Simulated scan of single mutants.
Amino acid sequence: MKFEVDTKGMSRVLKLVENIEKGREKALYRNVKAVQKKMKTMISAEIRKDPQHGLNLSKKYLDSKLRTGSISYSKLQARVYASRRGTLLSRFGATQRAKTTFVKKYGEKRKVNNGIAVKVLAKGRKKRMKGAFFIRLKNSGVQGVAIRKGGKLKVLYGPSPDQAMAQVIKHSDIRERVSAFAAEDLRHQVTHLLRK
């Protein structure tokens, strides 16, 4: 996501710090930093809590997949990026379902894998995938969910943080809320500089 702050009406506020050395630059720099931090917090919360599209992911995990752009006096832009890689299904509260059944091979009752249940949407229900099982991924050692298809092993993924962020931007009022925060914070930054 690339988000640009709406500057309508802000030039009036910035005129108040014209006589302060680098007042305009300082106010804008601090404002953009605050806006970027707020954007990340709001996007993370929306991805997890949106009534329709909210994903059943932990805040810690999701925050690690949201990155922010670098800010400088020459690059006053608030930006948040999200990982485009699909999210392992094991991240969505995956649980193994077992049932007790008679195993002919062993001549006794044993607990056997009856698939994996996952809950992708925060407000959704757990869905069971028959034949799915947990696996340790070779390179990272992280636990994933896999299934065998046509004799081949397939690791299963859910929506990527990037896809989730696109849904949040499309279906929520996050742009308006960030713009409102930006305008309010700029007034705060200008007031702070005038008091010095």
Rank of each mutant, 00 (worst) to 15 (best):
L28N: 06
V178C: 05
S160H: 05
G69N: 09
K109N: 15
S58L: 05
K126G: 08
V120A: 00
D162V: 06
K126F: 10
L137Y: 00
V155W: 03
R97I: 15
S11L: 11
Q167H: 10
Y29Q: 04
V155F: 01
Y61L: 08
A27W: 05
D173N: 14
V190N: 01
R148W: 10
G158E: 06
K130Q: 13
Y61H: 02
Q96P: 09
R12C: 01
I71C: 08
L14I: 09
R125S: 14
V17R: 03
G151E: 06
I174P: 00
R79K: 11
I147K: 08
F181K: 05
V13G: 11
M165R: 01
G144T: 07
F181P: 08
I135N: 00
L88T: 04
R177H: 03
L137C: 05
A27M: 05
A182V: 09
G150C: 05
R177A: 03
K22V: 04
E46M: 06
F92A: 07
T7F: 09
D185Y: 08
E108K: 15
G150W: 06
K170P: 01
K99D: 11
A180I: 07
N31T: 10
V120G: 02
D173L: 11
Q77A: 09
R136F: 07
A78T: 02
R195I: 00
S11G: 06
S72N: 06
M39K: 04
R128H: 05
K22N: 15
K37G: 10
A166R: 14
H171N: 13
Q96T: 12
E4S: 12
M165T: 14
K109L: 10
K104Q: 12
V13N: 12
L156K: 01
A78S: 09
R148A: 05
S74N: 08
V5N: 00
A45H: 07
V13I: 15
V13M: 05
T7Y: 11
P161A: 10
V112P: 09
R12K: 14
V13T: 14
I20L: 12
V5D: 03
L193D: 07
T87E: 08
K2L: 12
K37T: 11
R48A: 04
A45Q: 07
I174Q: 01
R128T: 12
Y157D: 06
I135G: 01
R79C: 04
E25G: 07
K109H: 15
V32W: 06
Q143E: 13
Y73M: 10
R48I: 09
T95I: 13
T100S: 14
L193T: 03
E184N: 04
K8N: 07
K130H: 09
Q167R: 15
H53L: 11
F102L: 13
R177E: 11
K111P: 09
G9F: 00
I147G: 03
K104E: 14
K126V: 02
L137T: 07
L66P: 01
S172R: 00
F133D: 06
G86I: 04
